[in-house]
Design a protein around this nucleic acid. Structure first.
Lengths: 222, 222
DNA sequence: GATCCTGAAATTGTATGCAATACTGACTTC
DNA sequence: GAAGTCAGTATTGCATACAATTTCAGGATC
């Protein structure tokens, strides 16, 4: 029945809490406290923290405990720069390799986004936007690239959350999606890449600006 | 004095043994055996395996133990496709941002490669080649990109090892390096990107071919 | 001979105990 | 009053013990 191990469940749960801001960047993650709250021993918690540390969501400072990764605007921008390139790559390849079924799915996802936009439902748009992008990753037919893009996407989630409802972002995002979709469907790989890169860079710029205007939790964590 | 934890040392050591082929792809990694051979308990070994699993070098199948990742030619090619893009990105940005000091270091590394080539020292060339590429990563001045490129480079190490001495590879590699260096120094980012991409893709093609001609250890590991 | 039990042995996953290091805060010294 | 010192406490890192699951050998059945 249940095949996964507890440490993996703990990892997912902690990641979820980081992504949703329950555990905000800079927060200390106490092993005993977490263990108690999840009703398990420290071992699976430790293993989960190690996993999250490898994926970058958590920072483990030897003998000094773990904290939720708190990255500055500089590194955030660097990560978006890479994200933009990965997505551009996905788009360029996807334009060549996408199947009819995947085209249909992508169009459907885009139209679903339109619905969310019309209803001005930011949460829904957020989820559907995610789906749209993941479909492009998958359409690259490079499972490793897909995994890398998805991993970095997840890594950036705690920060995306911050500007879910920036004014008018949905509209501009949606029209950018239209351009991207068009380029992919017409097999213009380089154009799709360029538009995706721009789409992500714009987001990244916004996020980095936002974060730099925010106070950091653990300013003196060295 | 010693600030690192044992599990990190174990991780490094096991990674090294994987990279050098002491633990070949597909090999089973028994926790008690490893613990005994390193003179530690299972705990740090398990933590090390989890880390290596996150970076992809090791595959942990729940309740069924860990094995050295054994990827097929298909995924190997996918990984090189991504590696090519990451390196291209490094090169494109590096051409814009490289400092005078970094230019000098890169030229020096290239010249060192030339020496190794003249002496036909494949091992030395291998190391210096690595250094050359890492200098380009660093010159991108995007520490996250640098880390990602380095991580994937490491991930591919066990396979690079396989064709260290392919006939005449040193010469063609070296002349490709010359073209890359030239493009970077003359600030032609797109050209540098294109040449780096090609440089890596050629390698990837060779590796994938080589691996596909090799017998796999754990062909029936499902 | 192949397939299906079945139970012991082996191996992983989790909990707990102990040792080593880092943190805290009162006290001392200047 | 600020900085340094030195116990005492808290927390992490590692070892060990136990539980849960898988693996595998040896028969039984067809």
């Amino acid at each position: 029945m249940e095949k996964r191990k507890r440490s993996d469940q703990m990892s997912d749960e902690i990641e979820e809490r980081i992504a949703t801001g329950i555990y905000p960047p800079g927060m200390r993650l106490d092993e005993v406290e977490l263990a108690a709250s999840f009703g398990v021993s420290r071992t699976p918690i430790r293993e989960a923290l190690i996993q999250l540390s490898s994926s970058g969501l958590v920072e483990i400072r030897p003998r000094r405990g773990a904290i939720v990764a708190d990255i500055g605007p500089q590194q955030l921008w660097e990560m978006f720069e890479v994200m933009a390139e990965l997505e551009a790559m996905c788009g360029r390849i996807a334009a060549r390799r996408i199947s009819k079924e995947e085209q249909a799915a992508l169009v459907a996802a885009h139209e679903a986004c339109e619905t969310a936009r019309e209803q001005n439902d930011a949460d829904m748009y957020y989820r559907l936007n995610e789906q749209f992008h993941h479909l492009i990753y998958a359409a690259s037919h490079n499972s490793f690239l897909q995994a890398q893009a998805a991993a970095l996407h997840r890594r950036l989630k705690p920060y995306r959350r911050l500007q879910l409802r920036v004014r008018d972002r949905m509209n501009s995002s949606f029209s950018e999606h239209a351009g991207i979709l068009d380029a992919i469907l017409s097999e213009q790989g380089d154009l799709a890449a360029e538009r995706l890169r721009e789409h992500v860079v714009v987001q990244g710029q916004r996020f980095a600006d936002l974060v730099s205007s925010l106070p950091r939790l653990n300013a003196a964590s060295r």
